[in-house]
Simulated scan of single mutants.
Amino acid sequence: MSESAQKSYDYATADFNAVYRGGELLGDTGITRVPWDVGEPQPGVIEFERRGRIRGDVLDAGCGLGDNAVFLAARGYRVTAVDAASTAIERAVERAAGRPGGADIEFAVADATSLTEYAGRFDTLLDSALFHTLDADGRRRYAAALRRAGRPGAWLDMLCFAAVPGGMPEPLSVSEQTVRQVLTDAGWTVTELTQAVYWGVAEATRTFLEKTGTQVEIDDKGRTQLPVWSVLAERS
């Protein structure tokens, strides 16, 4: 597809409940399967835990189907997992049942750009690919909501699509400058920002990638290897 013919989409109109039910996520993208459902925790989340970046009460914001939450709960962390999509939460509860730590997770439907009911509750706030799905105003409100939900000195561990070659198209991907500015303005101190990898289901996004002219790396297990910013921040 030529550059002039490449399609663009209004990502703010994505219907997350629909895709969790097998419907279309966004317009005519052909995404009718959850593209981030790889059935296991994201490598970036595993790395956060390995590095000792998880402590105390944990909020998994935009938890999706709950694999990251289950991973952390199985390691003894107290996890609250929220998502704005009620269907995601229903399926996450079902998936967690019977898995180590799954019964101990507090799942809830909640708007991550508000989180008023969770003020001052968490020591660690985890975002595995939510920030980049929001528009500019949503990102600002979300960063502020996370800060409100954190206790003094709380940690934020975040993975978001990086606006770099081989990544998702903008505005679905975010520049390093934008990440730093939004978090700083919301009262976070960014202590580390590096590039990492986020797994996706290549077959679920094949049509979308073709229509947007996006070329990404795919591994031998059929997973997209998407570049993300791995961000560590502290509540100022």
Rank of each mutant, 00 (worst) to 15 (best):
residue 41 P to L: 02
residue 117 E to M: 13
residue 101 G to T: 05
residue 49 E to W: 07
residue 124 T to L: 03
residue 72 L to A: 06
residue 49 E to G: 09
residue 107 F to V: 01
residue 75 R to H: 15
residue 91 R to V: 07
residue 84 A to H: 11
residue 130 L to P: 06
residue 68 N to I: 03
residue 69 A to L: 00
residue 38 V to R: 12
residue 20 Y to E: 10
residue 129 A to W: 03
residue 55 R to L: 05
residue 127 D to M: 02
residue 58 V to A: 05
residue 58 V to D: 05
residue 121 R to A: 15
residue 132 H to Y: 07
residue 87 T to A: 06
residue 65 L to N: 09
residue 135 D to F: 07
residue 95 R to A: 14
residue 123 D to G: 14
residue 145 A to M: 02
residue 65 L to F: 11
residue 125 L to S: 04
residue 30 G to A: 10
residue 78 R to T: 13
residue 106 E to N: 10
residue 147 R to W: 10
residue 147 R to C: 04
residue 40 E to A: 14
residue 23 G to T: 00
residue 84 A to G: 11
residue 102 G to L: 02
residue 60 D to G: 11
residue 138 G to S: 07
residue 83 D to H: 10
residue 135 D to I: 01
residue 84 A to W: 10
residue 119 A to T: 15
residue 96 A to E: 12
residue 32 T to N: 15
residue 93 V to N: 00
residue 103 A to Q: 14
residue 96 A to M: 13
residue 100 P to W: 13
residue 42 Q to A: 06
residue 55 R to P: 04
residue 87 T to G: 05
residue 88 A to W: 05
residue 138 G to L: 00
residue 99 R to F: 06
residue 88 A to V: 01
residue 20 Y to T: 09
residue 47 E to R: 14
residue 115 L to P: 13
residue 121 R to V: 04
residue 86 S to P: 08
residue 75 R to Q: 09
residue 40 E to P: 10
residue 119 A to Y: 12
residue 27 G to D: 15
residue 79 V to R: 02
residue 62 G to I: 02
residue 57 D to F: 12
residue 149 A to R: 08
residue 34 V to Y: 05
residue 73 A to L: 00
residue 148 R to F: 13
residue 34 V to A: 06
residue 132 H to A: 00
residue 109 V to Y: 08
residue 62 G to C: 04
residue 35 P to M: 00
residue 104 D to N: 08
residue 23 G to S: 07
residue 98 G to D: 13
residue 21 R to T: 10
residue 43 P to Q: 08
residue 61 A to E: 00
residue 144 A to D: 13
residue 63 C to I: 02
residue 85 A to N: 08
residue 79 V to A: 02
residue 121 R to M: 12
residue 48 F to M: 04
residue 111 D to F: 12
residue 95 R to D: 06
residue 52 G to A: 02
residue 43 P to E: 06
residue 69 A to Y: 00
residue 105 I to P: 06
residue 88 A to C: 04
residue 143 A to T: 05
residue 89 I to G: 12
residue 27 G to S: 15
residue 36 W to Y: 02
residue 95 R to W: 07
residue 107 F to Y: 14
residue 128 S to E: 05
residue 115 L to K: 12
residue 117 E to R: 15
residue 111 D to E: 14
residue 131 F to I: 05
residue 55 R to Q: 14
residue 84 A to P: 09
residue 44 G to N: 01
residue 134 L to R: 06
residue 52 G to D: 09
residue 42 Q to I: 00
residue 92 A to M: 07
residue 78 R to L: 03
residue 23 G to M: 01
residue 104 D to A: 15
residue 96 A to V: 12
residue 93 V to A: 03
residue 92 A to Y: 08
residue 98 G to P: 14
residue 86 S to K: 12
residue 122 F to T: 03
